[in-house]
Design a protein around this nucleic acid. Structure first.
Lengths: 119, 119
DNA sequence: ATAAACCCTGACATCAATGTCAGAGTCAAC
DNA sequence: GTTGACTCTGACATTGATGTCAGGGTTTAT
């Protein structure tokens, strides 16, 4: 399978597939022409990469456990849980910040509306 | 007042004060030497800029109404409310995304813990 | 054999406020 | 008058997955 086919099979852009390779998430053998050659397992692997990316993990974090999760269950891969916990802590931090800003905005919007009503 | 003094008075870095000027948020007269010269009002203006930045507004958005809010109440400045409403919508979007990821992570963490308990 | 479609690498752009550095000029205090 | 602290401009770096382009080689179908 060439890179364009893998792209269509997974929805990942050709550019992204090359980037995953550069980051050590994906490997390909090479044809005599220099073209990348992928096997069927690559489809599942790319799907897995995109799943973890959608959780907000970095390619570096994913690289740390991708090999393990491709051959075992997540629970068996010691690297996964700490990464999840770290990400969860980051998200809780972001949620707290956004929630505070949200309250502030809502108050300010209400104040403006009230001041205008008084006229 | 020179830029270092304004920096100390407001907590904004010298670099940031020059950036605000570049973005049209802050103006300064110049001494013969080329040094920027600020008046007392600049302190209040910088504090105001930083307040809006802390709400997540961009310098471009702030530039759109800063002059007005420095001389009037927010409610009098027509530009403010739409900017607040746009920002609020963006934040609600981000909150929805982060909340979804958070649920997903919590489920996955629980699954891993359960699978490990079974051994 | 030619054209269209595909692939390669390398590089720059994105977003945006801020840090940091270099090289040079200015000011203040002693 | 010298030294240290301050200021100036301009430029590059940060963050990170992805888009896009240029210039060139390959494959495939006609």
């Amino acid at each position: 399978m060439k890179i364009g086919e893998l792209s269509k099979a997974t929805g990942a852009s050709v550019r992204s597939l090359r980037y995953y390779e550069q980051k050590g998430l994906l490997t390909a053998s090479r044809q005599a022409s220099g073209y990348r050659e992928y096997n069927q397992l690559a489809i599942e692997q790319v799907n897995t990469i995109q799943l973890y990316l959608s959780l907000g993990l970095s390619t570096e974090q994913i690289a740390g456990f991708l090999h393990c999760v491709m051959i075992s269950k997540e629970a068996f891969c010691a690297e996964v849980l700490p990464v999840y916990e770290k990400k969860l802590a980051e998200i809780d931090e972001q949620l707290a910040l956004l929630t505070a800003i949200r309250s502030n905005l809502i108050d300010r919007i209400a104040s403006i509306r009230e001041e205008r009503m008084e006229e």
